[in-house]
């Protein structure tokens, strides 16, 4: 699980630069929440392209904490990013007003998708690719909004577990307050990821690493000392959220169906 940090930074910075420039673009765009994942994506992008080619946006809702905005600004300053604040409250509140019984989960999803709309619009404005900020733990557990924060053109941190995100963030000099604070989607006051998930990221990462990277089966995991209940819960989350990691399911009719036997890379011709 421990990383060779130099090498990882090399690979990820080279990835951002190569995949951006080969299609003829210079810039990247990303949402900066004040959390560690987006800070790491931003730091890597700054390393790859220089901060002046990274466009970072903090997109708070009226219930988002002030700390988050302050931390986002700190990250932008540290890595000399282009930075702006886009308040989403006047965009989403009219919709919420129309649905009096809307619950927290639906609100969270609407906000995540609104931020996606803003980012992709900024992407058109500055001619930049949208950089993803979901880590491997979140992607495996399905802890993200489909076509919301999961939507991006490039994701430099999608193969890093949260534990590895922490390690790499310290190495890249991300402000300590961002590294140290409890991970939160900041969807409502006082929310933390670990509270909502019911286990800690470190627990989940040790388990996921053994389950996914080492391909250990469930009885083996239990024998290794992981609690049976946790193993089953996590395995089920991974299975149930596969749809978020796939493209749309297309009904096959022809000899050549997109995604199944019409297969090309995104990098086709680049």
């Amino acid at each position: 699980m421990k990383l060779n940090l130099d090498l990882t930074v090399d690979i990820l910075a080279n990835f951002i630069k190569d995949e951006t420039e080969k299609i003829g673009l210079k810039n990247v765009v990303l949402g900066l929440s004040g959390g560690i994942d987006s800070a790491l994506s931003a730091a890597l992008a700054a390393k790859a392209l220089g901060g002046n080619r990274v466009y970072a946006y903090c997109m708070p809702y009226k219930l988002s904490s002030d700390e988050s905005l302050k931390d986002a600004m700190k990250v932008a300053e540290t890595f000399r990013l282009n930075f702006d604040v886009i308040e989403i409250t006047p965009m989403v509140d009219p919709y919420f007003d129309m649905i009096p019984d809307i619950d927290k989960l639906r609100m969270g999803n609407v906000m995540a998708r609104q931020r996606m709309i803003c980012l992709f619009d900024m992407s058109a404005k500055v001619a930049g690719l949208v950089l993803g900020t979901s880590n491997k733990t979140e992607l495996l557990l399905g802890y993200g909004t489909w076509y919301g924060d999961l939507a991006s053109a490039l994701n430099p941190i999608g193969d890093l577990y949260k534990t590895q995100v922490w390690e790499l963030s310290e190495y890249l000099g991300i402000p300590q307050s961002v590294v140290d604070k409890a991970p939160t989607a900041d969807l409502w006051v006082g929310q933390t990821d670990e509270q909502e998930l019911g286990f800690t990221y470190r627990q989940a990462d040790d388990l996921l690493y053994a389950m996914v990277d080492e391909r250990r089966r469930i009885p083996e995991l239990i024998e290794m000392g992981f609690e049976e209940e946790l193993v089953k819960k996590v395995a089920e989350k991974v299975r149930r959220n596969q749809f978020k990691r796939n493209m749309t399911v297309i009904a096959k009719v022809s000899q050549r169906t997109i995604g199944r036997d019409f297969r090309y890379c995104r990098d086709w011709g680049y």
Partner: peptide, 10 residues
Amino acid sequence: PARGNLEQGH
């Protein structure tokens, strides 16, 4: 391809 990028180099 570079992969299995852990402690000891990939």
